[in-house]
Structure formats: structure tokens, C-alpha cells
């Protein structure tokens, strides 16, 4: 009897905790969603309960976003830069991380830390010298400037992250694959990469998110509004003087964050730790 009671209490506790986390994490989405469909008057009146609709929902903010700005163009620009930066990052960071993970002695670790340190230099310091580089390359006001510059943030971070993931892959696995008939490269592609997929997906999402939210480089290197990314276009067009178009901004944020949330949820089981369990011992 008491055992049953304790079990019930534990369950209630566990679900309570879970509900708390879910509420905490879902709240921003709820806020974005409700703000998107509230009338401006509803939003600005402090008498009303901010968590509920007072006036009936409206599509006015979405209309503003899609008809008065070139949001779809910005979304396309961001996706274009995002995909290219992800590809560049993975192509560079995966072999780099693997080499550093398998370099024996202290050099691997030292180099890895060195690479990570470059990630810590903030864009606010780098954008002035990089502006010179971009000008020299003739890439001002081109999306290609962002394609070139963003990897300077994502590659060091992802290399460092992947180094950790590759280190966790037992050497025995690669050696077994090499004895089973593969070259070192094939063993890496067919065994190490699939086993480290959680790390690689983490890099993909990190990089994609970075491109969606980066502001400093976007605003300095791009001048034409048709070349803006979402993170530059939205605040530039939807904040006019001291007038904030909250509804449209929240709509933009919601639309921009949904794809990342969906991708993340598709692979969430892959991120769960213990993926390599059962490989050795």
C-alpha cells in the first residue's frame, strides 16, 4: 500500500517536473504565436490579460510581413547562405576534428584548444578587418560575403565539438573495419561517421541557427534590402523609429524558428546520449 503510494508520488513528481520544463520551453513559442494573431490595440492595452486574446484574432500582422516587406526573399537568402555554410562547415570540420582526435600526444589537444580560442574572438572585433577583406575580394553587398565569413565562427566551434565526439569513438571500431576489408578512409566514412552522427547533426543545427540569428556581419556587409537575411531584414524594416511592429516581428521569428525546431525534433533520439553503447564491452 505504502509502496503504491510512494510510486504514485514519484510519478506525480516526475510529471510535474516534466510539465514545468515543457511549459518553460514552449512558452516563447506560445508568446510568438499569440502575438502574431493579436490586434495591435489588444497588444498595447495593459488592462487586458496578456496571455489571452481579447479582440478576435487577426491576420493583419502576417499580411504586413508578407506584403509590406520582402520577408520571403530574406527567408530564401538566409536558407541559401545557411545551406552553403553548413556544407562548408561539415566538409572542413569533420576531417579536421577527426585528425585532431586521432593525433597522438599533446599536439592534438593543444591545436584543438587553439582552434577553439579563435571562436571566442567576437564578430564585433573582427568585422572591421573582415570588411577590408570582403572589399578586397569585391564581395560587398553580396550574399557570398556571408557564405565566406560565417564559417570563421562555425568551423572552429564545430571542429572542437566533433573532436570530442570522435575521441569517444573507440579505435577498435576503426581497426575492426580495416581488418574487415576497408581502407582507413572507408572505415572512417562507413563506421566512424555513422557512429558520430549525433555530433555531426549538432554541428548542422548549430551552424544553421548561427546563420539565422547572426546580425553584425549581416548588417555591415550587406546594404541592399534584397540581399538581407532574416535577422537583418526584420529589425530593419519592422522597427521604424520608436514604432515596433510586434505582431509582424513575432510572426517572422516564429516562421524562422519553425524549420529548426522541426529538424531538431526529427533527430532528437539521435542526440540522446549513449548512442555508442554496446560497441565495446
Amino acid at each position: 500500500m505504502t509502496g503504491g503510494l510512494a510510486r504514485t508520488a514519484r510519478r506525480v513528481g516526475r510529471f510535474g517536473l516534466l510539465a514545468g520544463f515543457v511549459g518553460f520551453l514552449a512558452f516563447p513559442f506560445y508568446w510568438m504565436l499569440i502575438t502574431t494573431f493579436k490586434t495591435t490595440q489588444d497588444l498595447h492595452n495593459t488592462e487586458y490579460n496578456p496571455y489571452l486574446f481579447h479582440d478576435p484574432p487577426t491576420l493583419e500582422h502576417l499580411r504586413t510581413l508578407f506584403e509590406d516587406t520582402i520577408f520571403l526573399q530574406w527567408l530564401w537568402n538566409t536558407a541559401f547562405v545557411g545551406v552553403l555554410v553548413v556544407i562548408i562547415t561539415i566538409v572542413l570540420a569533420v576531417p579536421a576534428g577527426y585528425s585532431l582526435a586521432r593525433t597522438t600526444g599533446r599536439w592534438g589537444q593543444t591545436l584543438g584548444v587553439g582552434i577553439f580560442l579563435t571562436y571566442l574572438v567576437p564578430p564585433t572585433i573582427l568585422f572591421i578587418p573582415l570588411a577590408r577583406v570582403i572589399a578586397w575580394l569585391g564581395l560587398q553587398d553580396s550574399l557570398w560575403s556571408l557564405v565566406l565569413v560565417y564559417p570563421s565562427i562555425s568551423v572552429p566551434f564545430c571542429t572542437w565539438l566533433l573532436m570530442g565526439f570522435f575521441k569517444a569513438v573507440p579505435r577498435d571500431l576503426e581497426e575492426a573495419a580495416m581488418l574487415d576489408g576497408l581502407s582507413r578512409l572507408a572505415a572512417f566514412v562507413r563506421v566512424v561517421v555513422p557512429v558520430s552522427i549525433a555530433g555531426i547533426l549538432t554541428c548542422v543545427i548549430f551552424t544553421f541557427t548561427l546563420v539565422f540569428q547572426e546580425f553584425v556581419y549581416g548588417v555591415t556587409f550587406i546594404t541592399a534590402s534584397t540581399n538581407y537575411t532574416v535577422s537583418v531584414g526584420v529589425p530593419t524594416f519592422l522597427v521604424r523609429g520608436d514604432v515596433y511592429f510586434w505582431g509582424s516581428m513575432m510572426a517572422a521569428c516564429l516562421i524562422a524558428s519553425l524549420p529548426i525546431a522541426v529538424i531538431y525534433n526529427l533527430f532528437v533520439d539521435r542526440f540522446v546520449a549513449g548512442f555508442t553503447a554496446g560497441a565495446v564491452k
Binding site: A176, M178, L179, D180, K281
Partner: peptide, 30 residues
């Protein structure tokens, strides 16, 4: 010569099974 050309099979102390494959996939791998 590299290991793959020596026609040797090795069983590791850790067994080194490929965690992302089924048992059938592991056995079929070589």
C-alpha cells in the same frame, strides 16, 4: 601491406561491434 589485404580476422578484447548496425549487419560487414 594494409590490414584489409592480409585476409586476417581479429576478435578484439572489446569485441568492437558496430553499434549502428544490427547483428546481421555486423556479421555481413566483412
Amino acid at each position: 601491406l594494409p590490414p584489409r589485404t592480409r585476409n586476417i580476422a581479429m576478435v578484439f578484447q572489446s569485441y568492437a561491434l558496430y553499434p549502428h548496425m544490427t547483428v546481421a549487419g555486423n556479421i555481413a560487414f566483412p
